[in-house]
Nucleic acid binder design. Structure first.
Length: 145
DNA sequence: TAGGCCATCTGGTCCT
DNA sequence: AGGACCAGATGGCCTA
């Protein structure tokens, strides 16, 4: 059984048109990504964004009146702290995406014009690990996995 | 044009 | 107190 068959039998079926396995590393950037540090905007430059990108929604928190039930302590943060938190969050998401890119390079990708999405990357990784475990089990039945 | 995917902002919660 | 993590919301881009 090859990986394609395994994927088709697995709990996490991939898209129906994922048929060919491409063992070459997936091309990392088929679509535009933030390859250069997005958080390089320091706090001074961020201030402009704050003005432009003022809160776009108010569905959560005090601004919408949903804060009564859950918030034990209300944390008041000022504009500078909010900007700093946004920068940290961008940085965090960037490192998360770097990890996803690493994972994309580890799993054999299907011959597929598009780069794997994050969810498909996770699902394929699950399939791949299961497949390799099964392969190992077949070749070394007595070895503990 | 609808739906998928993603980046970003944001507030709440957890943890140090 | 403040950073990390998380999830919801929103808007932009791309593809079928």
């Amino acid at each position: 059984m090859n990986l394609t068959e395994f994927a088709q039998k697995s709990t996490y079926p991939l898209e129906p048109n994922h048929e060919q396995v491409d063992t070459a590393p997936s091309s990392p950037d088929d679509q535009t990504r933030l390859s250069d540090s997005p958080w390089s905007l320091d706090l001074e430059t961020c201030s402009e964004h704050l003005v432009v990108g003022a809160p776009r929604y108010y569905s959560r928190g005090a601004l919408h009146g949903h804060h009564h039930s859950r918030s034990k302590r209300r944390r008041i943060i000022n504009v500078v702290q909010r900007q700093a938190a946004n920068v940290r969050e961008r940085k965090r998401m960037y490192s998360l995406n770097e990890a996803f890119d690493d994972l994309r390079r580890k799993v054999p990708t299907f011959a597929y014009e598009k780069r794997l999405s994050r969810i498909d990357t996770l699902r394929l990784a699950i399939v791949y690990i299961s497949f390799m475990s099964e392969l190992l089990e077949q070749s070394c039945p007595n070895s503990p996995i």
